[in-house]
Design a protein around this nucleic acid. Structure first.
Lengths: 338, 338
DNA sequence: TTGAAAGCGATACCAT
DNA sequence: ATGGTATCGCTTTCAA
């Protein structure tokens, strides 16, 4: 049996390869009878078009790349990426795209992968998920002609398309909520200051205090790293500063904070309230259940894909900016139910 | 500026496209001076070979596929997949391969993706990660000519290459350890019986008991689903059965079990010992720290890639079987340190 | 509606 | 060591 190609299918169906191609790509102008004959032959033979040949001829690979740079540490620590990928994969499926993953683990790998991320004929565009300030790939991407969007506000100049959740408003609402319930020495356990997430959530914290005329004290702000242990350590410090509430930039860190408070014998929320960010599944299982800001991670992934497809089809200008809303999920740790 | 192609690079460097191709692919027979000139032009122009054209001509895509079927629920619940992907991605990078992800979320997506997984010219081979009995894709893969390996012992007939961890011995060692420390009413919280993981871990449990002459009681075996809640419920039942130890098929479920025991006022390990499986990061942070069977997840991914590349290069026969060893990590929850 | 033929941008064989 | 050329399997004008 000869290698199956369009030509061969055409031969068997009694038509040209052009017609077979039209059938496969659902073009209008094929007579029903011929179309059916071709479909039958395809069915019988189990023919599948050769993807590379297709990409070459059509100048479309129908592959999207997802770039996850070195901050990959978080990849294991946090369910964030799995959820994001889930959304991205789902949207890719829906739109007939295949997803390629570019993950770096160290600087040398990073260098090696740049060419591949930027190479033609491998993907139609790229989703870039990192909001670390000094990421070197982002400028390269920006100056290339590879269509791309970032997940999370990018920390470089230029008209870059991105989708993000509303970190500022999310945290602002959480802090306002605590103020309304009488807290005044509200501490903030933040993310790294060189990430947009870290910056924006901190900004939300500051804005809420200022809005309500509560003084902003540097001593009540601790920069941490999104890990459980980081939250644990930061909480210990903030207890010493006499905080009566903790607004934590991620649930993972909030879990660490709760652990610290338990060990220190602090009652939550009576003595100190805690609010997280993410709404991980585990947030409802903590003792007490964690009040937290829910962010639509999966939807972020879906929107990223759709935005990218838009950029691919219609060009990068003007830059798209999509900000998805968050939602404050009130459980017991904030004290609102006391 | 004309589209950059081999031809164009050749023109600028004063040689033929053949020579440029040789330079790019590191063929020997190119004179140093010409090679340098070509490299310079490539550098200047920022030329990148067109991946699809390359794949078509070379009949190699340098892309591997990773298929994660519907059991994807676990994808969020468990850090397993992120870790596995991490290993796979790392190995792909090391070997100059790009990783494509095929994730299904429901039956209809599944159907739609089959052609793509099986299509030619998209990947050079596929890693299949599912050990659910009735997965329909696996037989298709087996009967196709797509090179593939599975992660986890496959539950279909045939000489299929796979890599797995030693689930049987891992659990057997854990149970033996508990018996040595005087436990006799050892319960087992298992994974789904239609997965090879569920089957093998249960088998390890049974083997250890039989080896030591401890009766196997069905009432002490609960089939669960690898979720925290599943572990919680199962533990409650086993406490009622008077278990003095729990061998749990995953850390996630063990966390649920610990929570149940805490709520029931059972002291761990004094009244009831607990052993998990996985050694997640969180396992050392529980109260008390969890004794567990560590499995080399990342290494599994790496080995899967290397096995697949071997299959791609040297054909599927004979089937490769790689079983990676586990390790019992003794902390406090098993009572060995009392 | 259909087919012929010209690409798409590489690789690799065969001469030289 | 280098160049010419056929080829990979498809898409897409252009004519018929």
């Amino acid at each position: 049996m000869p290698q199956l190609t369009l030509e061969e299918i055409g031969r068997r169906a009694g038509c040209s390869r052009s017609t077979v191609s039209r059938v496969i790509n659902n073009h209008e102008s094929v007579s029903p009878s011929v179309r059916q004959r071709v479909l039958d032959v395809i069915e019988e033979t189990g023919y599948r078009p050769h993807a590379a040949a297709r990409s070459l001829a059509a100048k479309r690979t129908h592959v999207l790349g997802l770039v996850i740079p070195r901050s990959v540490q978080a990849f294991f620590a946090d369910p964030y990426f799995p959820r994001l990928i889930q959304g991205i994969a789902q949207a890719c499926n829906r739109h007939g795209y295949t997803l390629s993953l570019f993950m770096f683990h160290n600087e040398s790998e990073e260098k090696e992968l740049y060419p591949r991320v930027l190479s033609r004929g491998l993907t139609d565009g790229v989703i870039f998920s990192s909001s670390v300030q000094e990421d070197p790939l982002l400028p390269l991407l920006r100056d290339s002609d590879v269509p791309f969007v970032t997940v999370g506000r990018p920390l470089v100049e230029g008209p870059i398309s991105y989708v993000d959740v509303d970190n500022v408003v999310g945290v602002r609402n959480a802090v306002t909520h605590l103020i309304r319930h009488g807290r005044r020495r509200i501490g903030h356990i933040g993310g790294p200051a060189d990430t947009s997430v870290g910056q924006d959530r901190r900004q939300g914290y500051v804005e809420a205090l200022q809005e309500r005329g509560v003084p902003v004290r540097e001593a009540l702000i601790v920069e941490s790293d999104f890990t459980e242990t980081g939250g644990y350590l930061a909480a210990t410090r903030l207890v010493n500063e006499g905080a009566d509430a903790l607004v934590v930039a991620s649930d993972k860190m909030a879990f660490g904070a709760l652990r610290a408070l338990r060990e220190l014998g602090k009652r939550v929320p009576e003595e100190i309230a805690v609010v997280g960010f993410d709404d991980l599944e585990a947030a409802s299982l903590t003792q007490p259940p964690l009040t937290t800001v829910r962010q639509p991670i999966r939807q972020t992934g879906i929107t990223a894909v759709e935005t990218l497809l838009d950029v691919i089809d219609n060009g990068p200008q003007p830059a798209r900016r999509v900000i998805l809303p968050t939602q404050l999920v009130i459980r017991d740790s904030c004290g609102a139910r006391l």
